[in-house]
């Protein structure tokens, strides 16, 4: 599997995401936001967590207009895989690759905590290593993770089985406890919790390993 991790000024989970891909056997290239093209043969693009452009204007809004983002969109439109975590999820909603918006947490406070997530669907290459209904512990760390969609979109997400994860105990006020959503073709996943912080027993546990492993498995054989 060949992965690219985008680096915006203010990204600070770029290394963590690259390490998680590498541990799963991927070859990783870091791509600077001023670049205009992704490496040609990339299977999956990681959009990492952090504070791209300092979260100024709106979280992810300026990164969504960076030079590299046109290539990111083209990659997704071609059917390429994209994983956006935390600020990366915010970038994906700002680019329109995923529906909805991430608002300020309902209690207005930043929250860093390991949380239990419910796997809502195993029907994607991100979640096929889990069973629907599994509870997994994945850390969150965000100030703006309150996923907000209108009723119509929510109904569509549900009907299309595109809600990947929900919170057992909602930390931020997200609509329907949503922690992560899939694109229509199920190849773009955006989530607020950090699976790359759950691939190491010495650090945040290992419940995120299955995601990176199942991606590698699917994309190696693809």
């Amino acid at each position: 599997m060949k992965a690219a991790v985008l680096v915006f000024p203010g990204s600070n989970c770029d290394r963590d995401m690259a390490v998680a891909f590498e541990r799963a056997g991927a070859k990783v290239t870091m791509v600077w936001h001023k670049d205009t093209a992704l490496p040609g043969d990339v299977d999956i693009v990681g959009v990492p967590g952090g504070f791209s452009f300092g979260d100024y204007l709106r979280c992810g809004a300026i990164a969504a207009r960076s030079p590299i983002t046109a290539s990111l969109k083209a990659h997704a439109e071609r059917g390429g895989y994209v994983l956006g975590v935390c600020n990366g999820f915010q970038v994906l909603t700002e680019t329109g690759l995923l529906p909805g918006a991430l608002m300020r947490n309902a209690n207005l406070k930043f929250v860093c905590r390991a949380l239990d997530l419910r796997v809502e669907t195993s029907q994607s290459d991100f979640t096929s290593g889990y069973n629907a209904g599994d509870m997994i512990s994945i850390p969150v760390a965000h100030h703006d993770g309150n996923y907000t969609v209108d009723d119509e979109t929510l109904a569509k997400l549900r009907a299309e089985d595109r809600i990947a994860f929900t919170y057992d105990q909602n930390p931020n006020g997200s609509t329907a406890d949503i922690a992560g959503v899939l694109s229509e073709n199920r190849r773009v996943l955006g989530m607020m919790p950090h699976p790359e912080r759950a691939v190491d027993a010495q650090h945040g546990g290992t419940d995120g390993v299955a995601m990176f492993r199942s991606l590698t498995a699917s994309l190696e054989t693809a």
């Binding site: 600070n12 989970c13 290394r15 963590d16 390490v19 998680a20 967590g49 406070k109 930043f110 929250v111 860093c112 905590r113 850390p139 760390a141 950090h194 790359e196 912080r197 190491d200 650090h203 945040g204």
Partner: peptide, 9 residues
């Protein structure tokens, strides 16, 4: 919990 204590993994 208001401080990110896990970044850098």
């Amino acid at each position: 919990e208001q401080y990110d204590h896990m970044v850098m993994a």
